[in-house]
Design a binder for these strands. Structure first.
Length: 301
DNA sequence: GCGTCCAGGTCTACC
DNA sequence: GGTAGACCTGGACGC
């Protein structure tokens, strides 16, 4: 193995970022235990695929990156580090959130545990596709569709693992293949149209990650992608470090009802009202509130 | 074994 | 702007 380290930002918590939501269970991510690591097949600019793993250093000063084979050249190490920083969202500054939530009687744990940083795909393209695959289906079907997609269109590494597919490789697929072989069902035309728009340059999807526009504008732009509705756009905004929308799905509704419903029927407006005081942080407060048990029990996925 | 329901929803047509 | 109906798949559930 070729290993090297990169520094992490202040307040960074590796394990909490890995277990921030379900992405760590979707290929080409994998969680490896003893010692705890996040595996990932990374697509390099030169077309190669490289299997890597990330682990937190004992003194929390940085992240250890281990690459299959010998230590990559400096330029490749820098390329890998940039991908890792983006996947673990190093640039997300949670200090203002911790200052605010640290004073809240019921939610101060979020600051104490340094929760709130989300694991992301290597590209925003990956995040959008995976989010579409979570809509209107069980988690096991999401896993199955994603595994098929990676298996059919990803680039293979020396170890036989595969990268998340690039837009161009999905764009060349036929809708029938995506529908039946990859089992995307009615989502096939959504994913295909999105991949084709990204591949031909009609949509610069990666620009979302550096967008500084107001959240309402980004939300509107995301909603214009076919297959991205209310839930998906809100969820994707969270992965961009914007928390102005709740991104409610049936799991959130049911968990909220369990925690705060007091036996009564809960509407989306009730949930909106409950988290509204947290303003532009409400989407983050809601997610952490609903997933609080993940920090004390075994990660559920 | 078979039918029904619905899950980490979205789109379109219609009012 | 609000809402019914259609849409793929597969696991859970009742019979």
């Amino acid at each position: 193995l070729g290993t090297f380290t990169i520094p992490t930002p202040a307040g960074f918590h590796f394990r909490n970022t890995v277990y921030s939501h379900g992405w760590c269970g979707l290929a080409p991510f994998s969680v490896i235990d003893a010692p705890f690591r996040l595996g990932r097949t990374i697509a390099l600019r030169d077309g190669r695929a490289l299997e890597c793993s990330m682990s937190g250093m004992d003194d929390e000063s940085g992240l250890l990156i281990a690459c299959a084979g010998r230590l990559p050249a400096k330029a490749t190490r820098e390329e890998i580090a940039a991908v890792v920083r983006s996947m673990l969202h190093f640039e997300c500054d949670l200090a203002p959130f911790y200052r605010m939530i640290g004073k809240h009687r019921g939610h101060a744990w979020m600051a104490r545990r340094r929760a709130g940083r989300f694991l992301r795909g290597a590209t925003f393209f990956e995040d959008v596709v995976k989010t579409i695959l979570t809509t209107n289906c069980s988690w096991s079907l999401t896993e199955s569709m994603n595994t098929q997609l990676v298996g059919c269109f990803g680039v293979e590494s020396d170890l036989g693992t595969r990268t998340f597919p690039a837009p161009a490789s999905i764009a060349e697929a036929g809708e029938a293949f995506l529908r039946t072989r990859v089992k995307l069902g009615y989502r096939a035309p959504y994913v295909l149209e999105f991949a084709r728009r990204c591949a031909c340059g009609d949509l610069d999807v990666e620009a979302f990650r550096s967008a500084t526009a107001p959240a309402t504008e980004i939300y509107r732009a995301l909603r214009s992608i076919k297959g991205v509705g209310d839930y998906a756009a809100g969820n994707l905004l969270r992965l961009l470090g914007r928390f102005d929308y709740l991104g409610l799905d049936s799991w959130c509704r049911s968990k909220y009802t369990e925690l705060h419903g007091n036996g009564a029927t809960v509407t989306d407006r009730d949930i909106e009202r409950h988290y509204a005081p947290f303003e532009s942080w409400k989407g983050l407060v809601m997610w952490l509130d609903l997933t609080r048990y993940w920090y004390t029990e075994k990660f559920p996925l």
